[in-house]
Design a protein around this nucleic acid. Structure first.
Length: 201
DNA sequence: CAAACGATTTTCT
DNA sequence: GAAAATCGTTTGG
């Protein structure tokens, strides 16, 4: 079943980040469906989190979407090269977000391989926030889109994880955030081959 | 209006 | 292991 708006509007963004593990992110871009099981996430706790774009309540044209009601996508370009996909959570006015860092390919494998210019299925196909967006065809065109749409949603396919299989640790690439960089806001499925290994492990 | 800077990935040494 | 690639957003003049 597709995750409902009420799922995204829970108050605890860290709990949502944990809950998204094992769910399936589905996109339909240029007529083709692609999907993958979410195996790694990071929580960005709004105005109190120095690593968040909305830290201190900053509102700019880019971050405005973060203040929307939970259940929309926040996609932005990083390093001029990579599109990073986030889920906006909590209610209107509270800029919480969850970054999807890695997925395990599920459907549309051929299309994902083609988009990534690969021939074989390897973890590098979708094991980072930039590359999974490329594989799923996610670009800034999806910024602000509802996660209830026919071409972008997250569904629960009945995967349940044991607590001991969920690892909580520090986030990646946010050293500039000072003590907030030490918060255990990153979650991943223990032992999954598609969890990012590029950094910090 | 000009300049600096990334919630990263790939490639070269 | 180190460095380049690359551009929209943000910040300062």
């Amino acid at each position: 079943m597709i995750l409902s708006p009420s799922f995204y509007r829970q108050e605890d963004v860290v709990q949502i980040a944990r809950s998204l593990l094992g769910k399936v992110l589905v996109t339909k871009v240029e007529g083709s469906y692609t999907s993958g099981i979410i195996v790694e996430t990071e929580a960005y706790e709004g105005i109190t989190d120095k690593a968040s774009h909305a830290f201190g309540g900053r509102r700019t044209s880019r971050t405005e979407i973060m203040y929307e009601n939970g259940g929309v996508a926040y996609v932005y370009l990083c390093y001029g090269i990579h599109h990073l996909f986030n889920v906006i959570t909590h209610t209107k006015g509270v800029p919480h977000a969850v970054l999807i860092r890695a997925i395990e390919p599920l459907k549309g494998l051929e299309i994902m391989l083609k988009r990534r210019h690969k021939l074989l299925l390897k973890p590098t196909l979708t094991n980072g926030p930039g590359v999974l967006s490329q594989a799923l065809g996610i670009t800034t065109k999806l910024n602000g889109k509802s996660l209830q749409g026919a071409d972008l949603f997250i569904e629960d396919i009945g995967i349940s994880l044991l607590p001991e299989n969920i690892v909580a640790t520090t986030r990646v690439g946010v050293a500039y955030a000072g003590k907030d960089a030490l918060l255990p806001y990153r979650f991943y499925i223990q032992g999954n081959a598609f969890v990012g290994k590029a950094k910090g492990l």
